[in-house]
Design a protein around this nucleic acid. Structure first.
Lengths: 243, 243
DNA sequence: GTCGGCATAAGTGTTGACAATCATGCTGGC
DNA sequence: GCCAGCATGATTGTCAACACTTATGCCGAC
């Protein structure tokens, strides 16, 4: 994925040398270390152990994860394909830094894709799945009443995952998974905006209702309306100055 | 530059199962062979020189493109990330075979993404771009009147490219480019269906009109309607038995 | 004849070393 | 003091050889 803007960035004030990384060794060996290497580095990035723009030196990664350089390189190439890191020839790999404008673009794409998936879900939903949707709705209401941010956020994730599962659209799911990784950071900020919870709940309820009613167009519209409001929230983040 | 590496690669016994590949050497050397390797193998696949499901043996590719195994492997991994090839551990790489069901999924995703891009295009179109759109419309009409399939197909491509350019949506464009590569074969078959030309023209005209009228919702709807009809065509391909 | 098991070939996975390139600090002249 | 140019260290790019896995064909037992 070509980045539109190269941040030729001056070395930021942040510490280039970190005292010490966690250095976890849950399974440094095994049958398929290639897959594990990619997974390990990916989750390190997603957990924020490497910040956006930070350089990923192959030798350091080798040491930290007890991997050969071969595997590290393969993993970095994979992650570059996922849009999580960016590699420049002879310059090495960096954690990709997504600007707010890019975050908006990504969310727009999410909007239309999740809309598609929601429509498919409305066509295919089974009674059991409908019941599970309803269960999530109830739990969400309780979470909002109790103002439990964390719980609501988990339910939000669970709802979107369930909708994707019901929709069973491999192609869309793959792309969504890729995009999701690229803006974990931004999404977190959005969910923290004041009043977001109360705005979000009725939108989610409308999505659930449309799918339960097996109304594809309604489900797509509801999903798009929901994510459109996330985009608005992103823009207001820009005004506040966070990103 | 460096001493030209000779690929001592494959001293195997007579292995050419095929009469012979074209074996083009337009630029076997240069400054960045890594990128060239990926490009070369990709276009070989897209040109149909390797058919879906066919195995891509590293040594053969080395010989054919005069590349080291290292570069071939890197290229295959890249193409796997693009969804053009599929690699199985210890089993090697194959040209990915997209089933008709997958082609439908991909086209559905294209539908919503191109819809998004069309809407953006309607918001941003300049007068000069509007004029170019109109030019394409005129040429399309002439092509249909003369029943010039090939010319119409080119114009179709040109129109979609122009819309993407106007829309300026990097994220959507990247995904669309990836998806496009995955179904060049199917798309060709669709455009050959009888009557496709006459059906397609008014749809394209509606897209052009909506963008020229700076009507985002109309543009999105028109684009979606157009690609939805391509999906119908794909289904009818299934009935005929082609794929 | 056919089926299981072994020997061998074909092909991929991985490694360590070396070359090329980029970043950095130093020297010397002005 | 400042800048060009070189020496040097750090980091990535590439290779050729080797290790491992999977496929293929042969052989003998039944």
């Amino acid at each position: 994925m070509p980045a539109q803007q190269q941040n030729a960035g001056a070395p930021r004030s942040g510490a280039p040398k970190r005292g010490g990384r966690p250095a976890p060794h849950p399974s440094p060996s095994g049958d398929d270390r290639s897959l594990w290497a990619t997974t390990a580095i990916r989750s390190a990035i997603l957990n924020g152990e490497y910040s956006p723009g930070e350089r990923l030196v192959e030798a350091s990664l080798c040491e930290r994860f007890s991997l050969s350089r071969f595997l590290v390189r393969a993993a970095l190439q994979d992650l570059a394909g996922e849009g999580l890191v960016e590699v420049q020839r002879n310059k090495g790999a960096h954690v990709r830094k997504v600007s707010l404008a890019e975050a908006v673009e990504i969310t727009q794409v999410r909007m239309v894709l999740e809309g598609l998936v929601a429509a498919e879900a409305a066509k295919r939903v089974t009674d059991a799945q409908a019941a599970e949707l309803d269960e999530i709705r109830v739990l969400m209401r309780h979470a909002v009443e109790a103002s439990e941010f964390r719980r609501y956020s988990d339910l939000n994730q669970r709802l979107h995952n369930l909708v994707r599962a019901i929709g069973s659209h491999q192609t869309a799911e793959n792309i969504l998974a890729r995009l999701h990784g690229q803006l974990v950071r931004h999404q977190f900020a959005v969910s923290m905006l004041p009043g977001r919870l109360a705005v979000s709940l009725p939108q989610h309820e409308r999505i659930i209702e449309a799918i339960r009613a097996r109304d594809p167009d309604g489900a797509e519209a509801a999903m798009r309306a929901h994510i459109a409001s996330v985009i608005d929230a992103l823009h207001s983040l820009a005004e506040i100055g966070l990103s």
